[in-house]
């Protein structure tokens, strides 16, 4: 699966795109991201699976694209 990183979250993850082993679901993806990048804890973001927001746990498949979208506040 592919992970797209938006906004200033790229500071934490160090890139705007990652190719990852596909976890079983979005919950496990989030847990592993938080473990690998603990500073994500301090940020507000949501996941979108194939351009649809994730509100409840969704299963992941090979080839899925998940976006990590933080809150933007500049203007």
């Amino acid at each position: 699966m592919e992970l797209l990183i938006f906004g200033s979250l790229t500071d934490i993850i160090g890139t705007d795109k990652l190719v990852l082993e596909t976890p079983q679901d979005t919950e496990l993806l989030k847990v592993s991201l938080l473990k690998q990048y603990p500073s994500l804890e301090q940020t507000h973001f949501f996941l979108a699976l194939n351009k649809i927001m994730v509100q409840e746990k969704q299963p992941l498949q090979e080839g899925d694209v998940v976006a990590l979208m933080p809150a933007f506040s500049g203007g």
């Binding site: 938006f6 906004g7 200033s8 933080p70 809150a71 933007f72 506040s73 500049g74 203007g75």
Partner: peptide
Amino acid sequence: GAVTRYQG
């Protein structure tokens, strides 16, 4: 509307 660096 909102922006952050190069994205809006």
